[in-house]
C-alpha cells in the first residue's frame, strides 16, 4: 500500500480555515461589547432624534441654520464613523490579531498546524473584516433609515449611502491592515495605534503642506460625500487646510497601504520567533 503524499493546503484554503475558527472567537469576545457601544451610540442618538421629530420637537440647528435629515446623517457619518469608529475599531482589532494569541499563549497551537504562518494572519484579518463590516454597516443603514426620512427622500440620498458603505468598508480594511502590521512589528501596538489616530492623523490633517499624505485619513476623508463639519477649532483648521486627493489617487494609495501593510505583517509573523512568557 503506497503512502499518500502530504500536500500542504494553499494559502487561501488555510486562511479560510483560520477565518472560520477566528470569526466566532472575535465576535463573541469582550471586545465586541466595546464595538457594540461604539456603533450602537449613533443608532440610539438617531432613534431619539426620530422620536423627537415625530413628536414635533424643533429641528436640530447646525451653524445657526435648521439642519435637514441628510445634513444630520452626514455629520453623524463624519463624527461617529469616519473619524471615530473606523480608526478605533481598526486599532483595537488590528493590533490584537496576533497579539491576543501571544497573550493567551495559544499562538503555538496555531503555528504547529500544517498551515503557513502568513495564512494565520490573513485568515484572522478576514475574520476581523467580516466581524467589523457586519456590525458597522448595519448600524449606518439603521441611522440612515431613521434620520434621512425626517425631511428628505431616501431615494435622493441612496447614492451617497452606497458611497458611505463602500468607504467605511474600505476604511476598516486599510486601518485593519495597517494596525495588523503595527501589531506584529512593535511591542505596545495599541498605544502606538491610538497615538497615530488621535495624535498624528489629527495633527497632520490640521497642518498645511504634504505631511497629511502620510496618513490614511487624508485618502479616506477625500472619499466622504458629505460636507466636513466645522464643529470644533481643530475641525475648522482642518477644513481650511483641507486638500482633497482625486478619487483615483485615494483608491490607489489606500490599496497600496492595505497590500503593503498585510505583506509586511505576514512577513513579520513568518520570520518572528515568538517566545511565550511563563
Amino acid at each position: 500500500m503506497s503512502e499518500r503524499p502530504v500536500t500542504r493546503p494553499s494559502l487561501f484554503s488555510s486562511a479560510m480555515r483560520v477565518f472560520d475558527l477566528s470569526l466566532g472567537e472575535m465576535l463573541w469576545s469582550r471586545r465586541t461589547i466595546f464595538m457594540a457601544l461604539v456603533v450602537g451610540m449613533p443608532v440610539v442618538i438617531s432613534l431619539i432624534f426620530r422620536v423627537l421629530h415625530e413628536a414635533g420637537a424643533p429641528g436640530l440647528r447646525v451653524n445657526n441654520a435648521a439642519a435637514s435629515g441628510p445634513t444630520i446623517f452626514g455629520l453623524m457619518m463624519w463624527a461617529f464613523f469616519v473619524r471615530f469608529s473606523v480608526p478605533v475599531l481598526g486599532v483595537f482589532y488590528g493590533t490584537a490579531l496576533i497579539a491576543d494569541e501571544v497573550e493567551d499563549k495559544t499562538i503555538t497551537y496555531l503555528f504547529t498546524r500544517p498551515v503557513s504562518r502568513a495564512s494565520v494572519l490573513v485568515g484572522k484579518y478576514f475574520a476581523y473584516l467580516a466581524c467589523t463590516i457586519l456590525v458597522v454597516l448595519p448600524s449606518v443603514i439603521i441611522v440612515w433609515l431613521l434620520v434621512v426620512p425626517t425631511t428628505s427622500s431616501l431615494g435622493a440620498t441612496f447614492p451617497d449611502l452606497v458611497k458611505d458603505l463602500g468607504l467605511l468598508a474600505l476604511g476598516l480594511a486599510v486601518y485593519g491592515a495597517l494596525f495588523a502590521f503595527i501589531g506584529t512589528a512593535i511591542k505596545r501596538p495599541l498605544l502606538v495605534g491610538l497615538l497615530y489616530i488621535f495624535g498624528w492623523e489629527t495633527a497632520v490633517m490640521a497642518l498645511p503642506g504634504y505631511l497629511k499624505r502620510f496618513s490614511v485619513a487624508y485618502y479616506l476623508q477625500g472619499l466622504v460625500p458629505h460636507a466636513m463639519p466645522s464643529d470644533s477649532a481643530v475641525s475648522i483648521i482642518q477644513s481650511i487646510f483641507r486638500e482633497v486627493p482625486t478619487l483615483t489617487d485615494s483608491l490607489i494609495w489606500l490599496a497600496i497601504i492595505t497590500v503593503a501593510s498585510l505583506w509586511f505583517a505576514a512577513s513579520n509573523v513568518t520570520r518572528r520567533e515568538y517566545v511565550l512568557e511563563q
Binding site: H53, E54, L134, L137, P138, I141, I142, W144, L145, P149, T150, T151, S153, L154, G155, A156, F158, P159, L161, V162, L165
Partner: peptide, 23 residues
C-alpha cells in the same frame, strides 16, 4: 439588515416615495 437597507434605498430611488417617509 444590509440587504433590506440597500433594497429599500433602491426601491426609493427608482420607485419614488416610501411609507417610511414622514414628509
Amino acid at each position: 439588515v444590509i440587504i433590506v437597507g440597500l433594497a429599500t434605498g433602491l426601491v426609493a430611488m427608482y420607485g419614488g416615495n416610501l411609507p417610511m417617509r414622514s414628509t
